[in-house]
Amino acid sequence: MAFGLERMMPILRCPWSGEALTRQSDELVSPSGHRYPIINGKPVLVRHIRGLHVTPPDPAHISRTIDEFSVDSSYAGPVLNLGSGNVPSSDPRVISLDILPAENVDLVAEAENLPFATGTFGLVCSGAVFEHVHNPLAAAAEVRRVLRDQGSFYIDTAFLQGYHGFPSHFFNMTAQAVETYLVGDFVLEHSVVPDSGSPTMAVSMLLRRYLDALGAAERYRLEQMTVAEALAAMDAGRVSADMTEHDRRSLAASLVVVGRKPNGYDGPREPVAEHIVRDYYAARALVIARHHECDFYRHKTSARDVPAYGQLYQALAAGAVMNPLSEDSFTRATEQLNAEERRLRRIRDRLVAGL
């Protein structure tokens, strides 16, 4: 938190109206009446404020992949670290922004609606962020807006990586997609594969995660094979595919999804707000993850009184959206899934305590 709120005030803007903001006690307020809380010195400049925006995250759930964020002295400030996680920066040019109010974050905001004046930054850096952004094209447009002429947009984003969502994981991108859609109307100065994202790293990460998802006996059997033997066994279907649904989805080569168009779709109606739909599918993904955790710890515990936690697809069916044209239907289904997530979390914690 090197920049500080008072220094940020001249460049902060309302994410709804784009108006300048003034401070009133523990809030920032726009002339049109939008109000945003300041929590632990961090303004929360989000259009639809939810619990994750104002609740400090578990350190285990937020990125801190480097000791400190810094950039070359040749870049004129201010510099935006977009999706900073909990990485600190002592550089007085740097503003650390994240969707979660981690300790080292300067402000909480969403990439699709950056709360800054147009033409503010000399550099925007985004590392391992765009795969988690709900609308990467809108986020890239916002980055282009807040950069000054001759400002630079530095992106490092996922391609061949498994699912690693918190709070969510939406898009992996090819190099062609990043070049075309994120910086297509900028001067392309640099486009390379970093050492941290090499083909060797991709294979290593996916293989290690694949082995972790296998049962202990199957993993041991596979690890004793040569590479050629292991590939032949996989190609012939002689490696068990007995994984949790969370692991299968996290490592899948492809997915099949079928959606059915509801009655009345083309008629006059108010669309369901994007954040309502997003919250529902985030809750659904979290139930899948919690069920996976229960399976994982059930196989590790020696306790005999392991509580029943039911079948995953029964839980997902109970939390299905019955009318996707209705906001109330999404809200009720989300509440059902959130209740199931809390139940599974209690069971997981009980299993962990029995280790």
Rank of each mutant, 00 (worst) to 15 (best):
V108I: 07
L80M: 08
F121S: 08
F116S: 13
A128M: 05
R148E: 04
G127W: 06
L97I: 04
S89V: 09
A128R: 04
R148A: 13
E27F: 05
H53Q: 11
F116D: 10
P15A: 15
L147S: 11
R23G: 03
V105Q: 00
L82M: 14
N104A: 15
P56D: 00
P92F: 02
D91Q: 09
V29H: 08
F130Y: 11
E142Y: 09
T55W: 01
D72N: 13
R13V: 11
D98T: 02
H132S: 09
P115V: 02
I49L: 13
R148D: 00
P57D: 03
G119Y: 02
S96A: 15
R35C: 10
D106F: 07
G77R: 03
S25Y: 10
R47H: 01
E103D: 14
G85S: 00
H132W: 04
P136K: 09
D72P: 05
S25M: 09
P101V: 12
L21M: 08
I66R: 08
D91R: 10
H132F: 14
R47C: 01
V71H: 13
R50N: 04
V124S: 02
H34Y: 14
N104D: 13
T22N: 15
Q24M: 12
I62K: 00
F130A: 14
S17M: 07
S74L: 12
R148T: 13
R35T: 08
P56N: 01
N135V: 06
I66K: 12
L100P: 01
I11D: 03
V108C: 10
P37T: 02
E110N: 15
L82Y: 08
Y36S: 15
T118R: 05
V146G: 11
N40E: 15
E68S: 13
A60T: 03
A111W: 01
L123V: 09
A117R: 12
V146I: 11
P88A: 09
I95G: 07
F130I: 09
P78T: 01
I99E: 14
C125D: 10
E110K: 11
C125A: 15
V29N: 13
V105E: 00
V146L: 05
D106P: 05
S63M: 10
R23M: 08
S126Q: 13
P78F: 06
G18E: 00
A117L: 11
L100K: 00
E27R: 07
G122Y: 00
R35E: 03
E103Q: 15
I95A: 14
H34T: 06
V54Q: 03
P92E: 07
P115R: 15
V108S: 10
G122C: 01
A60F: 00
R145V: 03
I49A: 10
W16D: 12
H53K: 08
A139Y: 00
R35A: 07
L12K: 06
T120R: 11
E27H: 07
N113W: 02
V133M: 10
A109M: 14
E110Q: 06
S73F: 12
N113G: 04
G122F: 00
S89N: 10
G51M: 04
E27Y: 10
S63Q: 05
L114V: 03
V94N: 10
A141R: 02
V143D: 09
C14S: 12
P59Q: 01
S74H: 11
P136T: 05
H34W: 04
N40S: 15
